[in-house]
Design a protein around this nucleic acid. Structure first.
Length: 202
DNA sequence: ATAATGATTGGC
DNA sequence: CCAATCATTATT
């Protein structure tokens, strides 16, 4: 099991550490697991792309100000959920957005949750933060959950070696000015499950 | 109370 | 390219 120390560090370091770890969710339908292959670091009060920029503290982002290793889940665009892992110390509002998983377990359950007109390929089931949330059965009810243990948790996986870590600017943060260009999106090189809009790099 | 907008996705 | 769709936030 991971320790609190694993999560209690700055969000960029945590983002790096989360690559290769497992997001697991026990649900009535069964357990679902996926290997984390793409993340983005949101670096707190100085990061114009972060919900906590400038020390903004609202009901929505309150979890970011709490202890590390908890889930910050929020609702956007009137229809999507995104899952973050809270980093750093209490009152230091940093977090890591989980952007893509490679599903390893509970694939049929995920396919049911993602059911649309056409079948969804395994590598697309958890491709993108909102798709992943839907496939894993995560919504606002999970905001504030402790990810160390419990029905929604992060388990020890296989750390991703440096040579397989790619870095690029974050997605969907054009409003963030200079911070929009920072290479704070980390993902597994050559991994087909990384989100499509994110583009590929080597 | 009202207006603006979004850490996205999928369809055309 | 753009509509979907509404909670959250900022502003009056």
């Amino acid at each position: 099991m991971l320790t609190r120390d694993f999560f209690q560090r700055d969000s960029l370091a945590l983002a790096r550490g989360l690559l290769g770890m497992i997001l697991a969710h026990d649900t009535p339908e069964g357990v679902c697991r996926g290997r984390i292959v793409e993340v983005e670091a949101y670096r707190g009060v100085r990061d114009r792309a972060a919900h906590s920029f400038g020390g903004r503290r609202t009901p929505r982002n309150e979890t970011m100000y709490g202890p590390a290793g908890h889930a910050y889940v929020y609702f956007v665009y009137g229809m999507h959920h995104c899952v973050n892992v809270v980093a750093a110390d209490v009152d230091v509002p940093e977090a890591v957005l989980i952007r893509a998983l490679l599903p390893t377990e509970g694939i049929e359950i995920m396919q049911r949750r993602r059911a649309s007109s056409r079948a969804v390929k395994v590598e697309r089931l958890c491709q993108g933060p909102a798709n992943l949330s839907r496939a894993m059965g995560i919504d606002r009810r999970h905001n504030g959950f402790d990810l160390l243990a419990g029905p929604l948790r992060i388990e020890v996986g296989t750390p991703l070696p440096d040579r397989l870590v790619a870095k690029a600017p974050r997605v969907g943060v054009a409003y963030a000015g200079v911070d929009a260009r920072r290479p704070w999106r980390l993902y597994e090189r050559h991994q087909t499950a990384v989100s499509a809009l994110a583009g590929r790099r080597r």
